[in-house]
Amino acid sequence: MIDRREDADQYWTAVKAGILNGLYPINKFDMCHQRLLNTDDTNTEKTVSLRSATIYQRASSRKGFTRCNSTGAKKCRTR
Rank of each mutant, 00 (worst) to 15 (best):
C32T: 03
Y11P: 03
A8N: 12
S70Q: 12
N27S: 13
L36H: 10
N69W: 07
N69Y: 13
K74E: 10
D9Y: 06
L50R: 11
T44I: 10
K46W: 00
N27W: 10
G72V: 07
Y24K: 10
S60K: 15
L20T: 06
C76N: 09
T13V: 15
K74W: 09
S61H: 08
E45I: 00
N27H: 14
G72T: 04
R58F: 13
C68E: 06
N21R: 11
A14C: 06
T44C: 09
I2E: 07
T66W: 07
F29T: 04
T78M: 04
L36I: 13
K75C: 09
Y11G: 07
T71Q: 06
T39C: 02
G64P: 07
C68L: 01
K16G: 03
D3G: 13
Y56N: 12
N38F: 08
H33Q: 05
A17M: 03
Y56H: 15
M1I: 01
Q57Y: 05
A53N: 04
D9A: 13
K63M: 12
A17V: 00
E45K: 15
Q34I: 11
R79M: 04
M1A: 13
Y24L: 13
S61N: 15
H33P: 01
R5T: 11
A73C: 02
V15S: 00
K16D: 04
G64D: 05
D30P: 00
R35V: 14
S60I: 06
D30M: 06
S61Q: 13
R5S: 11
R51E: 14
C32V: 14
R77K: 15
T78K: 13
I19A: 03
L37S: 02
R51Y: 07
G18Y: 08
K46Q: 14
T78Q: 14
Y11Q: 02
C68P: 05
T47S: 11
R5E: 14
K46M: 08
N21S: 05
C68Y: 04
L20M: 08
I55L: 15
R58Q: 14
F29H: 04
R51G: 00
N38E: 15
E6Y: 05
H33K: 09
T54G: 02
S49M: 03
T54Y: 04
Y24I: 13
C76I: 02
G18R: 08
D40E: 15
Y11R: 06
E6K: 09
C76E: 05
K74D: 14
M1E: 04
I26F: 04
W12N: 09
G22C: 09
F65K: 14
R5I: 12
G22I: 09
R62M: 06
M31V: 14
S70C: 15
T54M: 12
D30Q: 09
S61L: 10
S52I: 00
K28P: 00
K74Q: 10
A53W: 02
S70M: 05
K75S: 13
R77M: 11
R58A: 15
A14K: 02
R67V: 15
N27K: 15
V15N: 01
M31P: 06
A73Y: 03
I26L: 13
T42S: 02
R77P: 01
G18T: 10
D40H: 09
H33V: 01
M31S: 08
V15G: 00
Y56I: 00
L20D: 04
L50I: 11
